[in-house]
Design a protein around this nucleic acid. Structure first.
Lengths: 213, 213, 213, 213
DNA sequence: TATGAATGAGTTTTCATTCAT
DNA sequence: TATGAATGAAAACTCATTCAT
């Protein structure tokens, strides 16, 4: 797939990718103009379609490019696999926060696509998204120790609610640092970690028995 | 604002509003066609623009109309004002769930707008949304008893995290009943309330001291 | 149908019709450019589609216009209804010849459409054509005296072969006068009628018994 | 002309010819895609244009190829040269009918070209067609005995009208067997011959004197 | 107040042909 | 001889908005 495009010299390839990312970022799939992309990439209209056949293909090429770019940055090895859910979740959430900031342009494209009502891309995008989500969830749950929860608590419900909180927290901080520099986020990271811990402390009390808290 | 439109006889006004709601619901702001709206409303193109000047104005008129319609249904008086946050939140969340189902057409318009990439409406919509959110939050917090939380817990953080959970739960159940009938939801309401309580039980343990649980 | 267009003032209507006829005549359905039509008609692109919605509709509007224009010129009353097939056919064929010359631009559009392979218009055009053909054939056969054919001859086969000849003759003379002026044809009409009679004389001998020739 | 192409090894030549025939057959001259042709032939775009310079040249190469292929199948020697026009014509017409079925793919290309509106190929094609037609007509007329026609009949007119009929009949039966198998036609050949004779019988009466009929 | 004809820049996509390699 | 990336004009069609009536 897209062999022709992949065979291009890196400079030109990047020019096209950047033009496409810029346009999809600014306007979303539907309002992005292939005309604008080719103009900004400095290529002819025909060439873009020579490579990608249509707008939709180009879009999903960019979606995959963007996802892979982010994933390549995450060292799976380095990911926290502590058996305790709180130990495990906090690092992951902070990494995600950093990535969301570092790759904010890329994230926007993905989020816009996720929320899009456009029938043309909905289904295909959801499949891509679901696959990644499933993979990450499985990876997150793998080897998690759920035996320590206090009696009377459903492990599934506990995990669910913890995930809801962490997602909420993630969104909160993403919004908070939306207009600030990436470096600020990194500088504040220790403080944010402490805040995360404060929030999660409440949940810890909720799920663990008296003596282990 | 829109005096001319407001001065119209109710039947015609409603025809226009319904046509606009139908179109914005089906297609979202960008893909909605003013043409279709005028056709379905049985009025001329010129007239629509005479009343609203442009598509954007019309859209925000509808957004406000829709929000007010939902709000009118919620008797503020009837809303649970129990001092305990859990007592208070569960009723509100279930009411919201019911409203989301009852006014699903209206909710869809709001949600689509909330998620839209379209630069044209983004900013203005977010302002409307933020104002409502702030108002509701203040109303929710008013008279809430935060003295019962166990020592060492920040009341603000506790409330925040409880709200994050309840929001997560709300979304979960909205999605769950998305394609089902309104009656089903009402029938299952007792069971859903029980599930809510199971989830919140975990948080209760987290925020309250030993003896009050 | 096409009420909006019909309501136009005659001058503008005619400008559009003429531009469309010119373009369809020169290029055929597929190669005709709606851009060229609007340019030559002196209207905007949008307007053409406002009236006709798409190229195909415009084409069939023109097809019907052209057919009606020709038909209006033929006084049904005046059409030869002699019971003898030869008496009847010769006048009709000569009228057709005159019409084909007088309306040669119109005929070309019809003939091109008839021969077109374009899937988009094939079916619909054939229906129009078949209806007209059937009507004309029925009208031609109506009241025809087929009792005078000599014994052993199938009336159906005789009529068929006579029609084949007359069609062949028609094409021959259309081609012959293709590049000449309409007036020339009219001037030569008497001579052509004589030639027709010479040709048909042969067929007369073929279908009628000895004593009636 | 096309020396470079002719010099190619047969296998490759045939691949290109077949690809071109397939595409021109399916889509007609205008809609045929040189892209598709090169893809199906397994050669590069550049090469096709290296051999034929442009699409038009390629098309006429194929037209000539197709015509020659059909002609090669007709052994001139074997063609009925009976002095009587009816004896002669019936065999030829039936052979033509068979060829039209056997080479239906080739015929379709020729017929489509004959009917095409496309200015680009019209003129040139008509010249080719006229030349062949003239040659065949001359061949048909050669050695024909026209002395037996009854008095008062122009031999030329008689021949003309007979040819018109036979052409009409040919078209009728080609249409009739258009969607049926080649074998069906062959099976029905005797019956068709009889029908031809019935039709021509009428003409025979028309052109021959009493006593020879 | 009410109409709806008119605008025109904009959209995605196609395809014969060229040319540097 | 052979490649296939690159071109760019052209296609049909859309739609919010205006304005003369």
């Amino acid at each position: 797939m897209y062999k022709k495009f992949e065979a291009l010299d890196d400079e030109k390839k990047q020019r096209i990718i950047n033009a496409a990312i810029g346009e999809f970022h600014d306007k979303g799939y539907e309002n992005a103009s292939t005309n604008t992309i080719t103009r900004n990439a400095g290529i002819s209209k025909g060439l873009l379609f020579h490579y990608f056949k249509n707008k939709k293909n180009l879009f999903f090429y960019i979606v995959n490019y963007v996802i892979n770019s982010i994933m390549d940055d995450v060292e799976d090895a380095g990911i926290n696999k502590a058996p305790d859910i709180f130990d495990r979740i906090i690092d992951r959430s902070l990494v995600k926060l950093e990535l969301a900031k570092k790759y904010s342009r890329f994230y926007k494209i993905i989020i816009d696509a996720y929320r899009s009502n456009c029938e043309e891309i909905k289904k295909e995008f959801n499949e891509i998204y679901a696959k990644i989500y499933k993979h990450h969830l499985a990876n997150f749950l793998d080897g998690l120790d759920t035996t320590k929860f206090r009696k009377g608590i459903s492990a599934g419900k506990a995990i669910e609610i913890i995930l809801m909180c962490i997602e909420g927290l993630g969104e909160k901080y993403i919004k908070l640092y939306d207009s600030r520099d990436s470096e600020e986020l990194i500088k504040d990271m220790a403080a944010i970690r402490q805040e995360y811990m404060d929030y999660l402390e409440i949940l810890k009390y909720g799920v663990y028995p008296e003596n282990t808290k």
